[in-house]
C-alpha cells in the first residue's frame, strides 16, 4: 500500500518531537495474524470518507522505555500510565495519518484510542481491507505501526 512512507515520516516526527527518541523505519510488510507475546497495542479508528484503523504494537520493554521517555518518569511495569501513553501514541499517529488521508481536514475523523495488553493475544482486521505495517527500531528495540484502510474508501 502506498502509505508506508507516510507512516514512516509521521512516526519519526512524533517520536523525535514528542518523545525525544530517534526511531529508524525498516522494510514495510504485511502483518499476518501472528500472536503478540508480552506486549501492548494501541488502536484508533478512522471514520468518514476513509474508514480504517491505525495500530501500534510494542513489546512490553519497548513500551516501558517509550513511556519513561514520553512522561519523563520511570515506569517498571505495564500499568495505567503505560496504557495511557500507548493510547496517546495511537492518537497522535492517527491524527497525523488523518492529515495525509484528508488534507482538507473535514472528511475524516479519528475515534477514541484504546490500549490492549497481555501475555498472548492477536489483533486482526476483519473487513476486507488493505493494510501495511512498518517496523521501527530504537536502542535495539522494535515496534510496528500498522494502517488498515477499509473497502470502498479509497
Amino acid at each position: 500500500m502506498k502509505y508506508a512512507q507516510d507512516i514512516a515520516n509521521a512516526t519519526q516526527e512524533i517520536f523525535s518531537s514528542m518523545i525525544m527518541l530517534d526511531v529508524v523505519p525498516g522494510e514495510p510488510f504485511q502483518r499476518d495474524g501472528t500472536k503478540l507475546l508480552n506486549g501492548i497495542s494501541g488502536i484508533i479508528g478512522l471514520a468518514g470518507e476513509v474508514k480504517g484503523l491505525l495500530s501500534i504494537h510494542l513489546p512490553n520493554k519497548a513500551s516501558l522505555d517509550i513511556t519513561t521517555a514520553f512522561l519523563g518518569m520511570d515506569v517498571e511495569e505495564v500499568d495505567e500510565d503505560v496504557c495511557d501513553a500507548v493510547g496517546e501514541l495511537a492518537n497522535m499517529l492517527g491524527g497525523s495519518i488523518k492529515t495525509i488521508l484528508d488534507p482538507s481536514g473535514s472528511k475524516v475523523q479519528i475515534s477514541m484510542p484504546s490500549a490492549i495488553h497481555g501475555e498472548e493475544y492477536a489483533v486482526d482486521c476483519l473487513t476486507d481491507s488493505e493494510s501495511v505495517a512498518v517496523p521501527f527500531t530504537f536502542n535495539d528495540q522494535t515496534f510496528t505501526v500498522e494502517l488498515q484502510i477499509g473497502p470502498k474508501s479509497l
Binding site: E119, Y121, A122, T127
Partner: peptide, 11 residues
C-alpha cells in the same frame, strides 16, 4: 470506523 478483533488467552 472498521472493526478489529482481539483474541488470546490473556489480554
Amino acid at each position: 470506523a472498521i472493526p478489529t478483533a482481539i483474541s488470546g488467552k490473556s489480554y
